[in-house]
Design a protein around this nucleic acid. Structure first.
Lengths: 225, 225
DNA sequence: CGCACCAATCTTGTATACAAGACTGTTGAG
DNA sequence: CTCAACAGTCTTGTATACAAGATTGGTGCG
């Protein structure tokens, strides 16, 4: 509600979307309070809101942690996105006049980020596409739900070492926009279904998430070719 | 998180689902604290969680209120339910063995409540059907989302004087279960779409919500035939 | 008699203090 | 040298105190 709490929440969410916050990262109340220049009370409020949104969880008297979705939760998150996003497209009759142009511009941004090689903004933009699409659909509830769900699937990708091809994703996005421009909403829904399945299939959900992944990466002297 | 907070949240939600809490009702922190025998801190936590779930909202220094969805929000809530519930059914391949039996039993309960004339439990059961269906689908995220969305549409129905025929709704539910039993998931999805549209169409969304509805009802000596 | 202004009361907003539990590092026995 | 027990430190959990604003009821002026 309060301006500052919102900015803590948004700040955490966007750090996740941008890949700057990894699953399992500890978020100490005192530390955050200092960073944002507020008291612990406000931080706790923001954390509790994020908890009900499924972004962080609290371990009693140990601290707040960015969630680490299990394989089951990961599958459920992708399934939820598939259900909602394809359902949205199938329900579509018309799109606001400027929506296609906006989405096209977004895909163009993805392309640029892809070429420039900024991993952070690339990840962020690939997630943002879906949020923008939801926004174009014009249902605020679904947009909010998808934002949180997208944050979760981003965490899943980090956790299960997605080898997803960012270029392929961006191609899918471009394809979806083309179909939307043609008014072929059913086709867009089908492609969206395939797209999300592709991303999910790119994950190694069989591999138990390695709680030491972060440490390993830091400690490995060079990339083990 | 905490047991007690959860029970405050659940208690408010179920009061809404059962029609005991009307939209616009004020929920004072002090009052709730006394009722639940906890301190204001816990009550505030629960309220803030309910706020991020879209069930209550806070008016600065005035108190917490059960949300009163605008006509736009009402439409969005129904649309969201339609998108998600039909999307779910369309995505369905198989159903757990006992799911159909459970749903059938639930519809039977609806029937009984219908005949016995308990308005509260009737409303509650009609909403619960959709939540049970989501549960059978087996996606915890979607179940949670639909629970909150159902609470919202229940509030909408109260606010916009739904003249929905409970018997017709229950018939729709029965029809959906029959189609599910036959494995005709696409047909179930179609019927669900019609069903939710029917409920939405039963609302008088054109009529501005009357902020005095509660008062009027209380003060009217008899039903103005 | 009507209306504007003001004081008293009530309610939430925020910070802070203290309690309770978890973790870490040390120390001492075997 | 290894391991278990323990004390110290750190972190969250919860209550409470006080500040800030909103509402209500009263009062006096026009």
């Amino acid at each position: 509600m309060t301006q500052l709490s919102d900015s803590i929440e948004d700040s955490v969410i966007s750090a996740i979307l941008g890949g700057r916050l990894r699953p399992g990262t500890r978020l100490g109340e005192a530390k955050l309070a200092e960073v944002y220049g507020v008291s612990r009370t406000r931080v706790r409020e923001a954390m509790m809101r994020l908890e009900t949104r499924g972004i962080v969880h609290v371990s009693a008297r140990r601290g707040w942690f960015v969630v680490e979705p299990s394989a089951t939760e990961a599958r459920a998150a992708f399934q939820a996105r598939r259900v909602i996003e394809t359902g949205m497209l199938r329900d579509l009759h018309t799109l606001p006049g400027d929506a296609v142009a906006h989405l096209r511009a977004h895909v163009e941004e993805e392309r640029e980020a892809l070429h420039s090689g900024h991993v952070g903004s690339r990840t962020c933009l690939l997630g943002d596409f879906h949020i923008h699409l939801a926004h174009a659909f014009g249902n605020a509830f679904l947009t909010d739900i998808l934002r949180d769900l997208t944050a979760r699937t981003t965490l899943v990708s980090m956790l299960y070492q997605s080898d997803q091809d960012a270029a392929a994703s961006s191609d899918d996005h471009a394809g979806i926009v083309t179909l939307l421009a043609d008014g072929d909403y059913a086709g867009a829904a089908r492609l969206m279904d395939e797209h999300i399945r592709r991303v999910e299939d790119g994950l190694d959900l069989a591999a138990a998430p390695d709680p030491l992944a972060g440490l390993r990466e830091i400690l490995s002297p060079g990339a083990p070719a």
